[in-house]
Design a protein around this nucleic acid. Sequence first.
DNA 1: AGAGCGCGAGAGAGCGCTCTCTGACCCCGC
DNA 2: GCGGGGTCAGAGAGCGCTCTCTCGCGCTCT
Lengths: 339, 339
Amino acid sequence: MTSKRPPTLEDVARAAGVSRATASRVINGVATVDEAMRSKVAAAVVATGYIPNTVARSLVTRKAGAIALVISGSDGSAEQVLGDPFFGRVVSGVVRSLLPRKVHPTLVLADSDAARADAVSYVRQGKADGALLVSTHSDDTLPGLFVDAGIPAVLFARPGRDVPISYVDLAHEQGAALAADRLVARGCRRVVTIAGPSDVPAAQDRLTGFRQAMARHGQAYVPVAKGNFTLESGARAMAELLAEHPDLDGVFAANDLMAAGALTILHQHHRTVPGDVAVVGFDDSEPAHFTHPQLTTVAQPVEEMAAEMARILLTHLQDQTHRPTSAIFDPHLVIRGSA
Amino acid sequence: MTSKRPPTLEDVARAAGVSRATASRVINGVATVDEAMRSKVAAAVVATGYIPNTVARSLVTRKAGAIALVISGSDGSAEQVLGDPFFGRVVSGVVRSLLPRKVHPTLVLADSDAARADAVSYVRQGKADGALLVSTHSDDTLPGLFVDAGIPAVLFARPGRDVPISYVDLAHEQGAALAADRLVARGCRRVVTIAGPSDVPAAQDRLTGFRQAMARHGQAYVPVAKGNFTLESGARAMAELLAEHPDLDGVFAANDLMAAGALTILHQHHRTVPGDVAVVGFDDSEPAHFTHPQLTTVAQPVEEMAAEMARILLTHLQDQTHRPTSAIFDPHLVIRGSA
DNA sequence: AGAGCGCGAGAGAGCGCTCTCTGACCCCGC
DNA sequence: GCGGGGTCAGAGAGCGCTCTCTCGCGCTCT
């Protein structure tokens, strides 16, 4: 009960009978320290229960030893992002890859212009060395803000605008092609697709990739209905397609939620899945396991992608001159009941 | 391009022609400053593009202005927690409630003893003022560690061990009673339940609450099968119950995942839901929407609970002498197709 | 043997901020 | 007219740490 204050480096130095500088060297693992001193200091650290004050350290080194995980989106939409299990997978990948380095991501929500400005100043305040940006909208201004501020940042998904920034992404076209291949291999000949919003690059890529793959398989024209990645929009799109193309026998939905919606409508119209109509989704999300039949879907290695994103940021932090890098991951098909 | 360095308080003071102390007062909104000085400083802040260095501030105030969101669990299990949409809801609630105060939570994973120790020292390093603990296991040592270290912390869910710590929780018994009431109201007379792991207090409470409510309704004995909150365990438990009590007409599962598993088995045994057997889940999780029929389930106001958790922590941080507080939330029944 | 050099430890100057303490100034009352 | 008290700005001492610079020591090389 002598000291309310936690021990400082000064205390350790005194206990070890060395200077503060030497204690600092030992703690930071500087090589040029005599073994005798090293062990004295090490003992003193244990004896005093010393824990370095990283705040003081940050002040002089100008490194926070922390990074921000910024969740962006249009007004209020970040709520959606958080509710999505996809987000949890991203977090999981990031955290795992950061854990060995003992850096922990700080969650910053940026779903309004004010919040976006705050996110940037958060980093400028010195609370983080760089940022990981997870953004839903392609016209997001956030990547630009970070680039302008000269803050090291890495994006999850290719930026919508042409911004010189590093990012990780999935080979969406290739994923869509896997879906096309599967449908064709199952014997589907009249295939349709439910696309995502046209302002989302990933949705566009999936549509393009699917069309091209189907063209390679000989189906030149693929009917499209547009959804917005929700269950309801998938159902609506499916109903439309069914009305216009009653003879369809295969559906590729740009995400699982829409595929689940499509499934409901197909049941209502008494089409069996995968007997009458085969359905392929995208994302391998949680819901894919709970539909009847379970969804065959294109999976992305979200955790790995997130981990790589963190790794790239760390690299940039070490070497500030680093050029924008990108890492594109390959999707794979998860075959369940629906196709 | 004159200065690579961001402007400091010193620069602002110089630009405004005042002392650093006065500039500091203006920036921190101290009342005893002449209006003329105030506006001069305000102008200088804008002119210089000054952003306070919170690291330096933290060093002297000994306040980080940040809090840690610690995800605990047994070895490696934190991965599971993160993948659960439930986690996203917690994060969402926490972030929302913290946002107006401009504090952002830092995510710390603590799914090993080493990681738990790190989590504690993370806060002791001065990087956070307090912690929000989300723990799955009741025998988690983490709450104890934080209490011992004298770190302000609030738990999501009642601590398993008897630890003097604040927490938010759900009235689980009451939620189970809602389920019982619903089943009885539907005319179920031979009701069974699938319980969660006995080392999880919430699971125990749900079981107890369900039994008591059924007793009130006249069914003195409720057959129980135990699961571990997974889909498979729910299916297994349902199969057991069905074998022993072929005439059962109502099931309460302690979470939605197990309810979904039960649904699968019921289908296999050609029992219609809710015609032959009514099923009620717990949590109102994502999967509840994707089962056939959709699950009737007991919902907890997770976001509100998380927000309150953050609020309690903030209160503790302002008033260090604060006693442990708890906030218990009421569940409500979400009626869908299964009961 | 003396000069030069490398190695490792200590001294001390900050990093950018807050906050106490000091002191200048003004207003009031006697 | 002068002392007392109140108000508000400035000076300066740190917060705990890192890191450069200095210096002493012992060794090698000529």
